[in-house]
Design a protein around this nucleic acid. Structure first.
Length: 135
DNA sequence: AATTACTACAACCGCGTGAAG
DNA sequence: TCTTCACGCGGTTGTAGTAAT
């Protein structure tokens, strides 16, 4: 069912589908990061639920995928968006709407979450402040 | 120096889609 | 052909840090 991914895999909370496997939530530790990196190095991306099963990582597959995509991927570009990237985001948003993953595809090194946060906190909320810099 | 408000970032939850059995 | 499982996307919420009063 649809709810299986939320209730069983991700749990929809702590210990959702598998009573024996408590799912940890909250900030990731460096140890957890290391486990995830090692897993992806060996098995590649995908099968995120297998990380929990094979490595004993107390995180749902959903959380693992997000962590990898947003912080652990080797080609990630960290730091502030450049003016050129800003312009690209605005242009892509005008064309695609809230299709953050599509935008992330165009902006290599940037993640959908990063773009989404950027748009919601800096572009969408304060367009005048950002682009006209009115006092 | 202390308190309050605002901004930015990270993570979680729920829904939808696709693939496999 | 139908049912179930897993993955990915988008939206929302919470926490931390910084600045201003």
């Amino acid at each position: 069912m649809v709810s299986s991914s939320s209730s069983s895999s991700s749990g929809g909370g702590v210990g959702g589908g598998s009573p024996q496997l408590a799912v940890k939530k909250g900030p990731w530790t460096t140890a957890e990061d290391a486990i995830l990196i090692e897993y992806v190095r060996k098995h590649g991306e995908g099968n995120w639920n297998a990380v929990q099963k094979n490595c004993g990582l107390l995180r749902c597959g959903k959380s693992c995928r997000l962590r990898w995509a947003n912080h652990l991927r080797p080609n990630l570009k960290k730091g502030a968006f450049t003016p050129e990237e800003e312009k690209t985001i605005i242009d892509l948003h005008a064309r695609l709407g809230n299709k953050w993953a599509r935008m992330a595809n165009k902006l290599s090194g940037r993640t959908d979450n990063e773009i989404k946060n950027y748009w919601n906190t800096r572009v969408k909320e304060t367009p005048t402040r950002r682009f006209t810099d009115l006092p």
